[in-house]
Design a protein around this nucleic acid. Structure first.
Lengths: 356, 356
DNA sequence: TTGAAAGCGCTACCAA
DNA sequence: TTGGTAGCGCTTTCAA
């Protein structure tokens, strides 16, 4: 018993219980399936078909609620209007915001998407593209996921190390982002600044870190290596998320005994985790320590204290990624250059003038 | 130019640039496509095929990296190993946690899923199931989404009003959840308790509210209607999320001037929004007002103060939903009764003994 | 202005 | 042990 046949509603089935296919319609109308196909797809030949025939066809289509079988159609056209999105973790607000933007654009354009959330498991990252090709995806969006082997469809990579002849990359201008965060703290008088760097697998890590170093240098400030801590990756457990790693990283920082008056986190989630850790060890934010996050996820404006952060327009980046991918799929002109997104500093309550 | 043909890697294409199909392999090996098909699918007949032939076939399969075309296969079997998940908003932690669980189970079982996030737009909710049927989904999971018309495939509804002959429902025991929250506050001496009810479209709203009223009655407490406020729905904007509605609802509560010492929110996100609103108007949590949330999303244990909340095991509920759906798809014995999930009270920092 | 027929890649039935 | 062949539902020449 096949799902589509156990019918108890009006879907795709005539009153006599027969599946509504082209053949069914053709018999019903007494015309050939070719004619119907041509009319329905408004193929060039449709121009030559009598208006009266067309009308009868459309009427029957409506009456029986005929829906072409996409998979049969696929055998010819090889187009399924599906793409795939690879993310490290779907339950993470960063990915979720991007997905939100991606979905918005895709839905407007009749595309669906598969998401595979690989939790940074290397074998999944390696195998997924192949499995997805079986499903005839027309393109893929890689979010913070390395492309290990070439893939025969267009790819858009968001914040990601992936390179390749067929990949377009979208990322924040990490140089600018770093400098925004750094100069903000500088203006508030901070000199002893701790830094969270992202896991090295993360596409933003290296550039951001480089930007931070450069900004420090220009400001004539020395970043002590004791104050730089790398965030852990996701664990294998379902439960582990980034705020844990922020909490944990901040705890290490405190334990080191090194003095610092400000922290530049790697993202808002780790910033929130860090705030929690500071509070737990009796340090107040921002009175004792200023904290700046990255991303500006929604929660950042509701946390206590509200987070000062460098905003990446995630929703828009998602939309842009989808748009870029569909253009490439349709072979519309589309430059393959990296697209750099301008970040913006959002000053809220978690940073203030340094205490001296 | 078809995506699968613009090949620049090893996918599905022989060295001569020909697509690797059964026919291709058959020619290469000098056997019939039937034989290959039988061997590959390990059909009953495979038992009758010479081991040497089998070996040669598998070798060729590996050599050319043959992958059956799922869509051609679909025309016969009518099984695509795809389901759909309908959610109000993918960027919302509640849905994201459920999706996480759903994905875990599906991935283990070779299924993919489409997600459609409808933002409570009535036309999308109404039309999506039909569009999804075109895509041959074998089942659907409705998260907090009403089923407006019957659908010819199995459905699992999570926290949801949806009813129907082919729907299994999974939800927390809202009665128990309400009583957990209420009696916790009672024990701390609270009598003037404000309540957020969910939007009426939400499947948990009515039951939870009923449970709360009953718990109040049993405790001999009168819930003042001035202290009950209904959360707004999502707006049409991409930006609006639940914590806004929590913030806004709490603000209304404060503005009303009615005295209360505790709040039972509808979920953690609205609880966090409410805490923010209280703080902004000079009320301390928990010193002045105790707050209890629902769900126990990850952020609840990192917020300031850490949130006391009634936990729903969202990840597990997602897994359970997927499991139930696949059982029904495979026609394995599976009761259609509602599945009630036991909630658990997690006491943290946002509640304390009432001030008097 | 319309229809017949080939074929997309695969499975399943029946023969050999 | 193996192969031929008829579809699945659709699109696309090519004929009529």
């Amino acid at each position: 018993m096949v799902a589509r046949n156990q019918n108890n509603s009006g879907y795709q089935v005539s009153s006599k219980g027969k599946r509504v296919t082209l053949t069914f319609l053709a018999e019903h109308l007494g015309v050939s399936i070719t004619t119907i196909s041509v009319v329905i797809n408004d193929a060039p030949l449709a121009a030559t078909i009598a208006q009266s025939t067309k009308d009868r066809i459309w009427e029957a289509v409506r009456k029986f609620n005929y829906q072409p079988n996409m998979y049969a159609r696929y055998l010819h056209s090889n187009r399924m209007y599906v793409i795939a999105v690879l993310v490290p973790h779907i339950g993470d607000l960063y990915s979720a915001s991007l997905l939100d933007g991606i979905e918005t654009y895709l839905a407007q354009n009749g595309y669906f998407y598969f998401v595979v959330s690989h939790r940074e498991a290397p074998d999944l990252i390696e195998k997924s593209p192949e499995t997805l090709m079986d499903r005839a995806v027309e393109g893929m969006i890689f979010i913070n996921t390395p492309l290990l082997r070439p893939v025969p469809v267009p790819i858009v990579a968001i914040s990601d190390l992936t390179k390749g002849p067929n990949v377009s990359r979208i990322m924040v201008d990490n140089q600018a982002a770093a400098s925004l965060a750094f100069s903000h703290l500088r203006m508030l008088g901070h000199r002893e600044i701790a830094i969270f760097t992202g896991p090295s697998a993360n596409g933003d890590s290296a550039k951001r870190w480089e930007g931070l170093r450069r900004a420090a240098k220009e400001a004539g400030i020395q970043i002590s290596s004791d104050l730089v801590v790398e965030l852990g990756r996701y664990g294998q457990s379902n439960r582990t998320a980034k705020s844990d790693s922020g909490y944990e990283a901040a705890s290490r920082l405190i334990a080191s005994g090194k003095r610092f008056t400000a922290l530049i986190a790697f993202n808002d989630v780790s910033a929130i985790g860090a705030v929690r850790a500071f509070l737990d060890s009796g340090l107040r934010v921002p009175q004792d320590i200023s904290v700046v996050g990255f991303d500006d996820i929604h929660e950042a404006s509701f946390s206590v204290p509200r987070l000062t952060t460098v905003r990446q327009p995630l929703h828009e980046m998602g939309e842009l990624a989808a748009k870029t991918l569909l253009r490439r799929i349709k072979n519309e002109p589309q430059s393959l250059d990296d697209i750099l997104i301008e970040p913006r500093l959002i000053v809220r309550e978690s940073t203030r003038q340094v205490n001296r």
